[in-house]
Write a protein that binds this DNA or RNA. Structure first.
Lengths: 148, 148
DNA sequence: AACAAAACCGAGTAATTTACTTGGTTTTAA
DNA sequence: TTAAAACCAAGTAAATTACTCGGTTTTGTT
């Protein structure tokens, strides 16, 4: 049940874009450096995020990526789903998809998978990039006080 | 974020054992047949469940497997974790394991992964095999009324 | 005692997925 | 004109998954 690097790096990259949300496009190279990720690989992920409408890209020199809306309107759920697909723990409970399993109506395990899926969705859809920024500020303030 | 067949089949097999919980050992062959699973593969899974103390095995003719306690004392969480390991979405938030990431204290994404992990655990630990039996009975009664 | 049913065990393997890299092209501000 | 950047398609090594195979051991039944 691990997330792949697509989802993990995607959230990191989007969080980075959120921290640098100013209207100016942020080049991949700087995201990759700050987050310690491969630029070429990130490129693929950004393609997915762009297709999902979560970021806009600006081509050419001084170009880069910008969040398509403010950080409080983008959720972790949208990011992960756009890069990894449904968070369903098994294929037969992927949202808006017909299952080919004719026993579905009688299937008890299916009920379990649905509950897992729903609870994951509920959590990830409730966390926005703005929430992460707020957490970030709290964490750093607290640790600065403690350490300093 | 899919469960592997280990977790899926494991839950099915344990549910089958719960439905057939009578004191008599249930041979793998019959579980495999009823659930449509490979017997040889199930064998591997039962080894994991046995090591976790969730089932007892009886060797020799007329042998098989029995739940180690009553269905209301065994949760889906215990089953899945014994076959797949932690439900943590990323390695750095596996329970009772030190992370080698020195940035952990300052890490915001980590907070997200912890919340996902916790919510998954909460759901799977709240569902017992007895709950599944109850659901099963309800489902079949309802469908029998509707169809018949 | 012999047989057969069953659990137990270790190793092997084909297919798939993952996590990238490579080598370009196109666009555009300076 | 140049260089920085996004865009794109394809390739690939390593890991994981979902099994199978070929046994050995145990034990109730006949």
């Amino acid at each position: 049940m691990r997330l792949s690097t697509r989802g993990r790096y995607g959230v990191k990259a989007m969080f980075d874009l959120a921290l640098n949300y100013s209207g100016e496009p942020v080049p991949l190279k700087s995201i990759a450096e700050r987050q310690g990720l491969s630029e070429a690989y990130l490129e693929q992920l950004m393609a997915g995020l762009r297709k999902a409408g979560l970021v806009k890209s600006v081509r050419g020199a001084q170009g880069g990526y910008v969040l398509s809306t403010s950080p409080d309107k983008i959720t972790v759920g949208e990011i992960i789903r756009s890069l990894e697909g449904s968070m369903a723990p098994v294929d037969c409970v992927i949202e808006n998809e017909e299952t080919d399993c004719e026993k579905a109506e009688y299937c008890v395990t299916r009920l379990v998978w649905e509950r897992i899926r729903d609870s994951i969705n509920q959590v990830v859809d409730s966390i926005t990039l703005q929430d992460m920024i707020d957490d970030y500020k709290r964490l750093h303030q607290r640790n600065a006080e403690k350490d300093g």
